[in-house]
């Protein structure tokens, strides 16, 4: 007997992870945790891409996921540099305290 999982379960898991990412993005105060929530959302979308790639039997979704990973890496490098710079200037990681562009 060879039973498998319906494809919709993967999509529902992707939706759950994405909703968790949105919740973390909205509720957290620590700027690093907010940033990690964004990564969680990107991962959830990657799972959707791979699942649809399976359904269509094409490799295109994998390529998209690959590019999302590359963009996430670039985004993490620049975003963490911005966080370092903010911390150097404000000495805080709370997003509520960072409410002006300059000074």
């Amino acid at each position: 007997m060879m039973t498998g999982v319906p494809l919709s379960w993967y999509l529902i898991l992707s939706a759950v992870l994405f909703a968790l990412g949105v919740a973390g993005f909205l509720f957290r105060k620590n700027i690093i945790t907010v940033f990690m929530s964004i990564e969680l959302m990107l991962n959830a979308v990657n799972l959707s891409f791979i699942a649809f790639s399976y359904q269509l039997q094409q490799v295109n979704g994998h390529i998209f996921t690959f590019f999302v990973m590359v963009v996430a890496a670039a985004e993490a490098a620049v975003g963490l540099a911005i966080i370092l710079s903010v911390f150097k200037n404000r000495a805080t990681l709370n997003v509520d305290d960072v409410n002006s562009m300059k000074y």
Partner: peptide
């Protein structure tokens, strides 16, 4: 989503 799509390990080889 069409529920006929069942994910089997090893069915997608590319």
């Amino acid at each position: 989503v069409p529920s006929s799509t069942i994910v089997h390990f090893g069915a997608f080889k590319s």
